[in-house]
Simulated assay, not measured.
Amino acid sequence: MSDGLLSRLIELIGTDATLALVTARGGRSVYVPERPTAQTEIAKIVGLDAATILGQSFGRESIIVPVAREWRVLQYDAQAMSVPQIAALTGCHVDTVRKIRRRHGLSAAQLDLFGGL
């Protein structure tokens, strides 16, 4: 379910807003009002425009935001963050970050090029 919800969130509000949401609330529920205002929690996290879009799809529901650890590792990697930075942001061990990066086809040389090892 969470992979499907992650894909749906990306489709609805884009990568940046989804990354902000899973970083702030991953693994926990968040209430999505039908008509959010700038003061609602969801709008403070993703912005009012994205919150409005979410309100149209999930209005008056609480959704359990996926943790999306592997996806977050790849997003931070695409931003050229170092392994220790990614580990700190995702709450996982540096070895886990390296394993995820390798699993997605980055060689040691590529990792070195981007400050990863």
Score class of each variant (00 low, 15 high):
residue 3 D to E: 15
residue 110 Q to I: 09
residue 64 I to W: 09
residue 117 L to P: 12
residue 116 G to I: 06
residue 4 G to T: 13
residue 25 R to I: 00
residue 98 R to W: 04
residue 80 A to E: 12
residue 43 A to Y: 06
residue 47 G to W: 00
residue 97 V to K: 00
residue 114 F to K: 14
residue 80 A to K: 13
residue 103 R to I: 02
residue 81 M to H: 12
residue 84 P to F: 05
residue 91 G to K: 09
residue 28 R to Y: 14
residue 68 A to Y: 01
residue 2 S to F: 08
residue 30 V to G: 03
residue 73 V to T: 13
residue 31 Y to H: 14
residue 63 I to H: 01
residue 55 G to D: 04
residue 38 A to G: 11
residue 42 I to M: 02
residue 85 Q to D: 11
residue 35 R to Q: 15
residue 11 E to T: 07
residue 67 V to W: 09
residue 62 S to V: 03
residue 104 H to L: 02
residue 6 L to D: 02
residue 44 K to F: 06
residue 8 R to M: 12
residue 111 L to A: 13
residue 6 L to T: 03
residue 34 E to P: 04
residue 45 I to K: 01
residue 10 I to G: 04
residue 56 Q to A: 13
residue 107 S to A: 05
residue 69 R to L: 11
residue 59 G to L: 07
residue 33 P to I: 04
residue 97 V to Y: 02
residue 17 A to S: 13
residue 9 L to S: 01
residue 13 I to C: 04
residue 37 T to C: 05
residue 112 D to R: 15
residue 74 L to K: 10
residue 4 G to D: 13
residue 62 S to Y: 11
residue 64 I to E: 12
residue 20 A to F: 05
residue 114 F to C: 09
residue 106 L to Y: 15
residue 1 M to D: 13
residue 88 A to C: 07
residue 38 A to L: 11
residue 82 S to C: 04
residue 16 D to R: 14
residue 22 V to G: 03
residue 112 D to G: 12
residue 11 E to C: 12
